Simulated scan of single mutants.
Amino acid sequence: MDHAGAVSVGQLLVATQPGRGGYFDRSVVLLIEHQAQATVGLCLNVMSEIPVHNVLSDFTELMSPPVGVFEGGPVNEDVVVALGEPGSPDSPPPGWERISGDIGVVDVNFPSELLATSFTQLRVFVGLSAWAPGQLESELIRGSWFRTGARAEDVFGDPGGLWRRVLRRMGGTTGRWSTWTDQPSNN
């Protein structure tokens, strides 16, 4: 995917400048909404300490490992968003809104008795990553993020090492960032 061009739903934002600390250090964010008023995403690789039974316990059986709640971001921490992969991508269930490919937002009020026959994978997030109008574009101009397309394995796979895996997949000069050591003093 072209790393330039317009920001759009379904893109991954991959943090640059690792080792600086802060919430978004080595984060991978899936953009789920992009409008003139705001851009909204979910951080895919930050686990929450909130017990899953406190959020959407009906979703637990279909959650991709590691089973747990993820921190979608530091904004609106009371908002719950579920992402799912439908069992039949050609005829997805009502209450599922496509983001990219087989990745979509699941209505958190989806009937629990239909979950197992409707979805193959689920992930639950608390909080959002959000940008005001023009804010994300400014961060992109400053070089704070790389962009690429999202894949189901990015969203529902092992969150450990996701930042490195996505960078490697991007290849080229961007892929070299994946070799950044956890101990910058070792460089």
Rank of each mutant, 00 (worst) to 15 (best):
F156H: 11
I32W: 09
V108L: 08
P133F: 07
S100F: 09
R26F: 10
S178Q: 12
Q35K: 13
D158C: 07
G175R: 06
P94F: 03
S91P: 05
S178C: 12
G160I: 01
V28N: 13
L162Q: 00
P51Y: 01
V28L: 13
N186K: 13
G157S: 10
E85S: 14
P65R: 14
E77F: 08
C43E: 01
P89W: 08
P66G: 03
R168W: 13
S100D: 13
L83C: 05
T117V: 08
Q183E: 14
V155K: 03
G72M: 07
D154Y: 13
V126P: 05
P111F: 12
V105C: 03
P92W: 13
G87S: 02
R176M: 15
A38E: 02
G72D: 04
E97M: 12
V79Y: 08
N109T: 07
P111C: 02
V80P: 05
E61A: 13
A36S: 07
L128A: 04
L162N: 00
Q135W: 00
P18G: 07
A130C: 09
G5R: 04
V155R: 05
W96R: 09
G160C: 01
Q11P: 06
E137D: 12
T174G: 06
V108P: 07
R151W: 09
A36Q: 13
P74A: 04
S91T: 13
A150S: 14
G104A: 11
